[in-house]
Computed example of a mutant assay.
Amino acid sequence: MSLIAFLGAVEIGLLFGLVALGVFISFRILNFPDLTVDGSLPLGAGVAATCIVGGWNPYLGTLLAFFAGCAAGLVTAWLNVKLKILHLLASILTMIALFSINLRVMGRPNIALLGEDTVFTPFEGLGLPFYWMNPLVLLVVVILAKIALDRFLLSEVGLAMRATGANQRMARAQGINTGRMTLMGIALSNGLVAFAGALFAQLQGGADITMGVGVIVIGLAAVILGEAVMSTRTIILATIACVVGSIIYRLFVSLALNADFIGLQAQDLKLITAVLVVAAMTLPGMRRKLRIKKITAGQGVRK
């Protein structure tokens, strides 16, 4: 793998680290299977691209994309909390609706941003090649987002949200408004994903209506891989694991697609994703079995 290919994989891994953080909030903190992210990522991309093409400040467009994602998450949570629709079905309904909404926002299936100013444009004057500059900028963004999320989850409201995901009945007994926590958490989750979509569109030079297909699988793969390779005993470690897992996932994908002797091609990306997710899900169990065998063997030696 060349240096440019490696940095490109790290760049996309950092970008989808934001998606992994969003998926972490819904799946791990709130125990809420949320498929809305497949629609909220292109929503963020479409809002940002539409604003930029319309002459808006790209930073303002990116901020609006974040709030648009929050609104999408609120709809999913509202369907579940207020209308008592099963969380999985509520997220599917919102995801389906977002396809039409995204077309309305963009006005057409795709928007090109070639030649337009983006949030990365001011950093081009630093003199660094784009394949170094973009990963560095994204690294700073991801670190800031991770620190902000850590501080939130360790706050009183964050603890209430974590209690809601752990045991809603007990949380309600402690006076926590679990419905409000669910609304807030799913909104924040999809806001992060839409924010990642806005940055992705500006990196790739355009937004497309289909760019969100399979995003939930990538986010879950990043979370599971991160949990498989490092400890997640604390919130700080868990959020680091999400970003690390996302980078590892993209590096594995890049390695597989660049390994000519394997014979994989670009159309095999979904197959690689499925294999990586299966490997990540089975790895912790295999490690646990090996640990038990070692303990048992050690006890047998003592006897």
Rank of each mutant, 00 (worst) to 15 (best):
L98W: 02
V275H: 05
W56D: 05
A163S: 14
F123S: 04
L153F: 06
M211G: 01
L3G: 14
L136G: 00
T273V: 10
V140N: 02
V141L: 15
V278H: 07
M230W: 12
T164N: 09
F200S: 14
R151L: 15
I292A: 15
G214T: 00
P135K: 03
D38G: 02
A112F: 12
R169V: 08
L188F: 05
R151E: 06
G158Q: 04
I101A: 14
P42V: 02
L89H: 02
T164R: 04
L154D: 10
P33C: 11
V278P: 06
L30R: 09
L113G: 08
V81C: 10
L271T: 14
I111R: 09
V137K: 09
P58G: 07
T76Q: 11
K82R: 14
I4F: 10
N102K: 09
M286L: 15
V301N: 07
L21V: 01
A221L: 02
D117R: 15
I101W: 13
S254D: 11
L139M: 05
I262S: 02
I292C: 02
G214I: 00
M1N: 10
G165R: 08
D208E: 15
P129V: 03
A148Y: 11
D208R: 13
I92K: 02
S231G: 11
L128D: 06
L203E: 07
K270E: 13
V223Q: 07
L188H: 00
A194C: 10
V81E: 13
F252Y: 08
A274T: 04
T282D: 12
I92R: 03
L41W: 04
M1D: 09
P109F: 08
L74Y: 13
K270M: 11
V157N: 13
S246N: 05
A222K: 01
T76S: 15
K294H: 15
G107V: 03
T210Y: 14
F32A: 05
W78D: 01
V275N: 04
G191E: 04
A160D: 10
A198N: 09
F130N: 10
G22S: 10
G285Q: 13
A45D: 06
V244P: 07
V75S: 10
R104L: 14
F24S: 06
S246D: 04
V253E: 14
A112C: 03
L159P: 01
L257Q: 12
V193F: 05
L237C: 07
L203I: 15
G205L: 12
R180G: 04
G191C: 01
E116M: 14
G205I: 03
A207E: 08
H87D: 13
R180K: 14
L136W: 03
W132P: 01
V81Q: 11
T50Y: 15
S155G: 05
K289P: 01
M230H: 03
V301G: 04
T234G: 10
T164H: 06
I25D: 10
V19A: 15
V47P: 00
L255I: 06
N110H: 14
G263I: 04
G55R: 11
I216V: 14
